[in-house]
Design a protein around this nucleic acid. Structure first.
Lengths: 120, 120
DNA sequence: TATACATATGAATATATAATCATACAAGAT
DNA sequence: ATCTTGTATGATTATATATTCATATGTATA
């Protein structure tokens, strides 16, 4: 049996040192989950399109649906997702609700994502 | 009936100009899908962890599973996803397969994602 | 008040996907 | 050749989620 470097490495494993060091550098679980959650929200075409639209102008729900040729309900559901992630904000004006970006970092993320796929 | 600015705006809509301009700036569908696909891959905790590990060192499948306390099969399945997205590469050495990052842009994306969640 | 309109929401459906299990495959080792 | 080990993969299951439909809510207007 191989000698183990620390008590985190008590499993039978071919490279205990690597595992030991890797375990020490693991990201906190809640950080991982927040990160995954953020990317998951960007991992949908409809939401990407909505965010891209809102990056240029404030829009009401009806116009977003029109622009994307999608149902009002589908857009509304997705806006709720984006709202709960605090990526968009809204203001009410009469019957209409106007949405806009709440967070410019998202645009940066999308831009970098675009760079990534262009390098592929 | 309101006057329409272009023939893209023949629907009944409260703000035809906005829709017209927004439609003109819409991202190409394949770009949207590639972008969404990239973020979707990052939108999973296990894959985030794997990428974060590989950002620091080359690792074999067994050690990744050990480090993350997960089954070998689960890791192998996820590595296949990461491989087909060309985010990781591998080399074989005897029975072992060593994985490493194939694309440094991903690390940048993750770093920026981390910044995003820290600003929240 | 009654009606029309913009938006939100719950239920239902269809689809995607992550993990597990069993097993196949490939490469030493005996 | 057989056995063991590391990895890959197909099938299955459970869970998540995107869209649609029907409807509720809220606001303006006739």
């Amino acid at each position: 049996m191989k000698e183990l470097l620390c008590d985190m490495c008590e499993e039978q494993c071919e490279h205990p040192e690597t595992v030991c060091r890797a375990k020490a550098e693991i990201l906190p679980e809640n950080t991982v989950q927040q990160l995954a959650e953020t990317f998951k929200i960007l991992g949908d075409g409809t939401r990407i399109k909505i965010l891209h639209l809102l990056a240029n102008r404030e829009m009401c729900v009806c116009d977003i649906a029109e622009t994307l040729s999608m149902g009002q309900s589908a857009i509304s559901h997705q806006l709720r997702v984006l709202r709960s992630a605090r990526l968009v904000k809204f203001r009410k004006d009469g019957k209409e609700v106007w949405y806009s970006l709440d967070d410019d970092h998202v645009v940066d993320l999308m831009r970098q994502g675009l760079e990534h796929i262009s390098h592929t």
